[in-house]
Amino acid sequence: MTEPPVQPRRRLTIVDYICFGLVGVIIAYAVYRVSDVLVYNWNWSRVFNFVIYYDEETARYVPNLLLEGIATTLRLAFWATIVAATIGLVMGYMRTSKNLAMRMISRCYVELVRNIPPVVFIFIFYFFLSGQLMPLIGIDDIDKHGDFVNSSVFYTLFGDPRLFSNFVAGALCLALFEGAYITEIVRAGIQSITKGQWEAARAVGLSPLNVLRDIIFPQAIRKILPPLAGQFITLIKDSAIVSLISIQELTFLATEVASTTTKVFETWIIVGAMYFVLCYSFATLFGHLEKRSMRARR
């Protein structure tokens, strides 16, 4: 048996080092401008205290505003993803429907959301719709002293009960917004299933609902899982926008921290790093899962 020829390991060449050097120079210059020309008094620890601080009384580290903010961001992303996925599944199917009315409704939804700036969309939704919608579904009437509402389970899932209606409005805004993008992903997924699969499923006499449930959706979902995961990460980043309607997530609290400490640069750099760590961890995790599921299917 002959051995396969050994591929030379790809190494960095001189050109690559020159590129790195150039990037280094640019960064060094930026640092020089900030430190020398800007004359700014850096104080990281004041802002760090808003991430986590040492409580002398209990002698423990306690999470502060910014960590609570990122928890709210995660909660928002979690619920918004669930609602958006539901919207996306239904609307995405409607986009491929034979029924013209169904196609028109879903198309209008998608085009409306995609062609309005997110900020504008969220203002419209929040000020005009949620004012009507929230009382209608009785969100404001929840018993703020009930056992479940005050339990730690509730807090973990929805955060502070006093901000519940506010939280729901924010999550709904995000969900409606991201739902349009998921709709398009689902549509592409459904359309990627060959005609033969529909025909074979119908030919054995499955009902329309079973055709979707057993044949089309399982295959479509496998195909759209990677873009869906990407959309989840996008949603985490987009959630910053609901700070504008006073949802107390990371970005909202960051503006508060920045104004109380007056340490604007530190605050936003730290918050940026927090978003980065969060999103990059998810991206790595999803990438890892995807590779594993690919391997599982040979």
């Binding site: 033969g196 074979a200 119908r202 054995v204 006499g205 499955l206 009902s207 399982p218």
Partner: peptide
């Protein structure tokens, strides 16, 4: 359709199901 079996040129088996599941799906559901 339940009384009429059909075989296609391009087989059209359900790729996400095992061979057994491909065959049992219709009897189980229908």
């Amino acid at each position: 359709r339940r009384e009429v079996g059909m075989v296609f040129q391009s087989f059209n088996l359900f790729p996400h199901m095992s061979i057994l599941e491909n065959v049992t799906l219709a009897p189980v559901r229908n």
